[in-house]
């Protein structure tokens, strides 16, 4: 029997903040530091959840609704994304389109919340986030199209059965590369954005949530962690097919794959500098080009 859908969703809910801990630990190892505890993201979330929220007088209900809408949309995506064998909890034809646009809804909520503060600083971050995600979206869809063309399926459960490793077609390896670039862009990681910086010229995601505090900030931070989990799960699903045939072992391998993706993000953050902002669209265009070549060659076969 495959791991029940509830267990897979619970695993994601519980382990998502640990991904951030793993990324930080990998970066610390590269820098020769001991690094913070792996449980530090959990502690931060609990600390924020205990505190009260402060609201500026210029904000309206949009600012208060943004964290809730964003977290709810991201959690809804979690229901659609499979992990390991057994398929997702909910599946229907074209569910990947809903998943992508639920993520867009989450982003739109945070962007609107940032604009609602009336701060030009946050407006700048919101504009950058909207621009870069608009460029990442075609790359993401092209990757899904590549997987759809090779697996002949239109549900995430079929698309994410590890086409890259289970097929002999070498061009399918390009889709995970493009997906990884989209992962870095969508989750505001280096080389697109530096999640640790608080310099106004470099921030994208961090600047949008400067005015949020307490449980609201905890919602957004937790949502960001779950979103990272979702992208890592999609990447793992695109690369790793069920290897052993034993459902529980394959599930454990898929979870390990998700953490391996996080470790890769940590390695990229350790060895690369952040790109200049005008070069980020070039990077995303490269992801689009890789995915397009993969799509052309997949359809050509």
């Amino acid at each position: 029997m495959a791991a029940p859908a509830v267990l897979r969703i619970l695993t994601a809910l519980v382990l998502a903040p640990l991904l951030l801990g793993v990324i930080n630990r990998v970066k610390a190892i590269f820098a020769g530091r001991q690094g913070r505890r792996l449980s530090q993201p959990y502690r931060d979330l609990f600390k924020l959840a205990r505190k009260g929220a402060v609201y500026s007088r210029t904000t309206t209900w949009i600012f208060k609704a943004a964290p809730v809408v964003s977290l709810a949309a991201i959690l809804a995506v979690l229901v659609l994304v499979p992990l390991g064998p057994g398929g997702p909890a909910l599946s229907f034809t074209g569910d990947f389109i809903l998943a992508v646009y639920l993520l867009a809804l989450a982003r739109a909520a945070v962007v609107l919340g940032a604009l609602d503060t009336g701060s030009s600083f946050e407006g700048m971050g919101a504009s950058r986030e909207a621009a870069f995600s608009a460029l990442a979206e075609p790359a993401l869809f092209l990757c899904f199209l590549v997987l759809a063309a090779s697996t002949h399926g239109l549900t995430l459960g079929v698309l994410l059965r590890g086409a890259a490793l289970s097929s002999t077609a070498p061009e399918l390896a390009l889709a995970p590369i493009a997906l990884f670039i989209v992962l870095l862009a969508e989750n505001s990681r280096i080389p697109v954005d530096d999640p640790n910086t608080h310099l106004e010229l470099t921030m994208i995601h961090e600047v949008m949530i400067l005015d949020h505090s307490g449980p609201d900030l905890a919602f957004i931070e937790y949502g960001a962690a779950v979103k990272l989990w979702i992208f890592c799960a999609v990447l793992t699903g695109a690369v790793l097919p069920p290897l052993t045939g034993d459902p529980w072992l394959d599930f454990a391998l898929a979870v390990a794959g998700v953490f391996a993706c996080a470790a890769c993000v940590g390695v990229v953050e350790s060895v690369m500098a952040r790109l200049r902002l005008p070069r980020v669209p070039k990077l995303l265009a490269l992801a689009c080009a890789c995915a397009t070549i993969a799509l052309i060659l997949t359809l050509w076969r």
Binding site: A169, P170, K282, C290, I293, L297
Partner: peptide, 20 residues
């Protein structure tokens, strides 16, 4: 022969890299 296709795709990718 199985190595030939990856080689050709690598060639196409170097073309893309040359252009960007």
């Amino acid at each position: 022969a199985a190595l030939f296709e990856p080689l050709m795709i690598a060639l196409i990718l170097t073309n893309l890299a040359l252009l960007v």
